Simulated assay, not measured.
Amino acid sequence: MVGPKRHFLPLILISLAAFIFYTFNHFSLSPAIAESNHRSTFPDPIPTLIHPNFSFVINVLAFNRLASLSRCLRSLAAADYLGDRIHLHLHIDHFTSDKASSVDPKLREARRILEFVDAFDWKFGEKVVHYRTGNVGLQAQWLEAWWPTSDHEFAFVVEDDLEVSSLYYEFVKTVILSFYYNASNYSPSIFGISLQRARFVPGTDFLFVYSSLL
């Protein structure tokens, strides 16, 4: 066997030294980089609080169905809120403009809905009515229903054709306390829950959830 020529020996030594230097730096810096990325990507768990002070907002998405909206609101008002202060925000979409049909019946129905929600008694907190001046559709209603004001505000979004159990808030509050304010269960991957099974609408690529906590 013929050994390497002498003029290749310095090159081999330099390459070996570079490899050792790279290996040492890679394994010594990787844990620090990983820890830094972990801190920047995931927020620290919220310390466990026995009696956390959070706010809760119900967002009802409505359109032109007075009968179903009244059932939805009455079921929400009949729920047990455990003495907590709960705010109600109603988001009413404007009727669609169609030249082929008369506007008068739509105006009368919109007026009936507004009169009903204005007179609806909500004794658990503030009631705010948002009425759009133009039709935006259900998807935009969902996307623009809630703008959180802090990390301690939670929103319950429900469409107007649903009714809730009188015990729904007790379940929702238990979930909030167990998975958000309990550090041992906290996960930054949990952004919300649904109170009913999500389902795909045949012939579309959309996954619909009609009530959810965010």
Score class of each variant (00 low, 15 high):
2 V>H: 06
3 G>R: 10
3 G>W: 06
5 K>G: 08
6 R>G: 01
6 R>N: 11
6 R>S: 08
7 H>Q: 10
8 F>I: 11
8 F>M: 15
12 I>A: 13
13 L>K: 10
14 I>L: 14
15 S>D: 03
16 L>M: 11
16 L>I: 08
17 A>F: 14
18 A>Y: 03
23 T>K: 09
24 F>T: 06
27 F>G: 00
27 F>H: 11
27 F>P: 02
28 S>W: 08
29 L>Y: 10
32 A>D: 12
32 A>W: 10
35 E>L: 13
38 H>M: 13
41 T>D: 11
42 F>Y: 14
45 P>K: 07
48 T>M: 09
50 I>V: 14
59 N>M: 07
60 V>A: 01
60 V>H: 03
61 L>I: 13
66 L>H: 05
69 L>M: 11
69 L>G: 02
72 C>F: 04
72 C>Y: 06
73 L>W: 02
73 L>F: 02
74 R>N: 15
75 S>M: 08
76 L>S: 05
76 L>C: 03
77 A>N: 13
79 A>T: 03
82 L>S: 15
82 L>D: 12
83 G>D: 11
84 D>R: 15
86 I>N: 02
86 I>G: 06
89 H>G: 01
90 L>R: 03
92 I>H: 04
92 I>W: 05
93 D>W: 01
95 F>S: 01
100 A>P: 00
100 A>C: 06
101 S>Q: 06
101 S>V: 13
105 P>C: 03
105 P>W: 04
107 L>E: 10
108 R>E: 12
108 R>Q: 15
109 E>L: 12
114 L>K: 09
116 F>P: 02
116 F>Q: 07
117 V>F: 05
117 V>I: 14
120 F>I: 11
121 D>C: 04
122 W>P: 00
126 E>V: 09
127 K>D: 05
127 K>M: 04
129 V>N: 09
129 V>M: 06
129 V>E: 02
130 H>I: 09
133 T>V: 12
134 G>D: 15
136 V>F: 04
140 A>G: 03
141 Q>N: 03
143 L>H: 07
144 E>N: 10
147 W>N: 12
148 P>G: 01
151 D>H: 07
152 H>W: 06
153 E>T: 04
153 E>L: 00
156 F>T: 00
156 F>Y: 15
156 F>K: 02
158 V>A: 05
162 L>K: 12
166 S>K: 10
167 L>Q: 13
167 L>C: 11
169 Y>P: 02
172 V>K: 08
173 K>M: 05
173 K>G: 02
174 T>F: 07
175 V>P: 00
180 Y>A: 05
184 S>L: 03
184 S>M: 07
185 N>V: 00
186 Y>N: 05
186 Y>P: 03
189 S>T: 08
191 F>C: 11
198 A>P: 09
199 R>K: 13
200 F>S: 11
200 F>R: 10
202 P>M: 11
204 T>V: 08
206 F>W: 10
206 F>M: 15
206 F>A: 15
207 L>Q: 09
207 L>Y: 11
208 F>D: 13
208 F>M: 14
209 V>G: 07
210 Y>C: 09
211 S>F: 03
